[in-house]
């Protein structure tokens, strides 16, 4: 195991394309080139169906790109592995295990003894504020707590890369905001290379160092933004001018605001 945050592993995608076979084959990704490393927090932002999840699943090792190559620290990715911690979009907490057993699962897979597992899980549960729930089953947790347990479960094996697929996508706005804070703090304590997929621009800005916006089907890189907001980011950050300015620019790229709206208003007024 490498000590937390000493090095940031590198993920590369070169000219990656992916097609979902079927009666109407869908080109999910096309000629996508992406590079993330050095403990960078990269957010991949795009509308539903733009291939964000496909990209993440390729990096996680569950899909093979139809064209192009993906590498992790220079080695071709040819299957799932615990050096790339993957948090799925769906609820994947194991309901038959206690919270602690969930967090310790990856350590058990590595053959670490009970005492060693216990030390790691105690520390992580403390970090996410769920120590009191260590012996609870997931049914006793809220959706937000469950998701944080999944994040902790992935962190337990200290992966060099985190792949997060809209982890907070199914949560209500307040819980989302709270978990974003929690994840931000967690990342600042244990720096890692993170690839974070989301459709929420605000979430991307709040967490990421860099944001890549994908176009819709086939997914290509449409724009890239650097997020130079100071860390640690807080509630104040969300209401700063720099934050809303960046959000406006991203929304324009996504085709949601600004230009097109301004174009439409005079036309209606003039007619």
């Amino acid at each position: 195991m490498t000590p937390a945050g000493t090095r940031g592993a590198r993920l590369e995608a070169v000219d990656v394309g992916y097609v979902y076979p079927g009666r109407t084959a869908t080109q999910a990704l096309d000629g996508l080139t992406l590079d993330v490393g050095d403990n960078e927090f990269l957010a991949v932002l795009g509308p539903v169906g733009c291939g964000k999840t496909t990209l993440l699943r390729i990096f996680a090792g569950f899909l093979r790109p139809a064209s192009g190559t993906v590498r992790c620290d220079g080695a071709a990715i040819d299957g799932p592995g615990s050096q790339r911690g993957y948090v799925l979009q769906e609820d994947a907490i194991f309901p038959w295990m206690t919270v602690r057993e969930n967090v310790e699962f990856g350590l058990m897979a590595r053959g670490i003894d009970a005492a060693g597992r216990r030390a790691v899980s105690a520390e992580l549960l403390d970090l996410i504020g769920l120590s009191a729930f260590e012996d609870a089953h997931p049914k006793e947790l809220s959706a937000g707590m469950s998701k944080m347990v999944e994040v902790a479960r992935v962190l337990a094996t200290d992966p060099s890369i985190l792949l997060l697929d809209e982890p907070f996508g199914a949560l209500d706005a307040q819980t989302r905001a709270r978990l974003q804070e929690a994840l931000g703090r967690l990342w600042e304590q244990r720096r890692k290379t993170v690839l974070f997929v989301t459709h929420d621009a605000e979430e991307a800005i709040h967490l990421a160092d860099r944001i890549v916006v994908l176009s819709s089907r086939p997914g290509r890189i449409k724009a890239e933004f650097r997020v130079d907001l100071p860390r640690p980011r807080s509630l104040e950050t969300r209401f700063s001018a720099a934050f809303s300015d960046l959000k406006r620019r991203i929304w324009e790229v996504l085709g949601l605001g600004g230009v097109s709206a301004r174009e439409q208003v005079p036309r209606i007024a003039g007619s």
């Binding site: 799932p80 790339r84 911690g85 993957y86 994947a92 194991f94 699962f105 897979a109 094996t157």
Partner: peptide
């Protein structure tokens, strides 16, 4: 999703079967 989560946490097929 459970099988994928287990696989990406490094579980061997035997461990995935048992747990």
């Amino acid at each position: 999703v459970y099988l994928e989560a287990a696989a990406s946490l490094g579980a061997s097929p035997g461990l995935a079967l048992r747990k």
